[in-house]
């Protein structure tokens, strides 16, 4: 299978008041054409920062200190690219908050048509038609009429559909989704996930889907990358990673998923401790202070992703510790 987008050794640093932190540390990701890569991790793990770096949207003070972005080209090769140059072409983004990601002073049709016109030359009416067609494609009922609506007149689910239509207007090869369903209620979330899945299959689109919700990952992704404290700690096909985790952090995330059949007298499982402060990451394996299987040598472990099963890589130097216990509560 061909790789649609590859990120190699990406590091992002932020300098504030003379202190430099590295919220994204040597992250490599790749997503195959037509696949969905789930990027999971707690808040502050560096997921969103990675997406922003890919699009060149880093906030003031943050900069990419190393790394390369490769995008599949028409010639069938991967080409190194500059984030700014792919804007409106190869990569689009769906934002987390459909409330704030749509300009309240523009009609829905104009929001979408803008992207279409930025991508290639077309007349106003052509862009308008494209916008209405896209609204139909993302399942907005009565697209002709909704096109004239203002964002505030739409429900959260509809807004997110408009966001997706807007992202598709530039005809991207890769769609970055930053927790696109977090702000929605569960039934709507399910519809949007179904929509993204359908669009991915119909258009052969690659998706990088950022979320902290493992259940969502199980639903939409084929591949998954788990991030912790600015690093990718485990990658692989979605089922093996979730069912037979080879990193204690992934395992902890999986076993933390609450179940409906949990007894009222039972406490929810949590991960002990708190995510480390980016200004003061622990030495060696950054999860070791919270890891139930930690060994003395973990604090000296070098961060290398090692392939333990087919395409299934982990940074844990003691994956056998996990294999000895049975994994409960996988989704």
């Amino acid at each position: 299978m061909t790789t649609a987008l590859e990120v190699r050794n990406l590091s992002v640093e932020i300098t504030r008041h003379g202190h430099t932190i590295r919220p994204v540390d040597d992250v490599s990701l790749s997503v195959d054409a037509g696949d969905c890569l789930g990027l999971v991790g707690e808040s502050g793990a560096g997921k969103s920062m990675t997406l922003k770096a890919i699009l060149g949207l880093l906030p003031k003070g943050a900069r990419v200190t190393s790394g390369e972005l490769l995008l599949h080209t028409a010639e069938g090769t991967l080409a190194s690219i500059d984030p700014i140059s792919v804007r409106g072409h190869g990569i689009s983004m769906v934002f987390q908050e459909p409330m704030t990601a749509l300009n309240p002073t523009r009609r829905v049709v104009d929001i979408i048509a803008d992207g279409a016109r930025a991508h290639r030359d077309m007349s106003k009416s052509e862009a308008h038609e494209t916008a209405v067609r896209l609204l139909g494609e993302v399942g907005v009922p009565a697209p002709e009429r909704r096109a004239r609506a203002w964002p505030h007149q739409l429900s959260g689910g509809l807004r997110q559909r408009v966001m997706i239509a807007m992202a598709l207007a530039t005809e991207p090869d890769v769609l970055l989704c930053d927790e696109p369903t977090t702000a929605l209620d569960v039934t709507v979330q399910d519809q949007i996930l179904g929509l993204l899945d359908r669009i991915r299959r119909e258009r052969g689109l690659s998706i990088i889907f950022v979320t902290h919700d493992l259940a969502v990952i199980g639903q939409v992704a084929q591949e998954v990358a788990v991030m912790y404290a600015g690093r990718v700690v485990e990658t692989g096909p979605v089922r093996p990673v979730l069912d037979r985790s080879l990193h204690p952090y992934t395992n902890a995330l999986v076993t933390s998923i609450p179940h409906v059949d949990i007894g009222t007298d039972q406490r929810l499982r949590t991960i002990e401790g708190a995510p480390p402060d980016p200004a003061n990451f622990p030495p060696g394996c950054r999860f070791s202070p919270r890891c139930p299987f930690a060994q003395p040598d973990c604090t000296r472990a070098e961060h290398v992703l090692v392939e333990q099963a087919t395409d299934h890589r982990t940074a844990c130097i003691h994956p056998e510790a996990l294999a000895s216990i049975s994994v409960e509560g996988s989704p």
Binding site: L55, R87, G88, H89, I91, E97, L102, N103, D114, T170
Partner: peptide, 10 residues
């Protein structure tokens, strides 16, 4: 976000 979205759209 919508400004970022416009930037991303090119």
């Amino acid at each position: 976000d919508y400004v970022a979205a416009a930037v991303v759209a090119g």
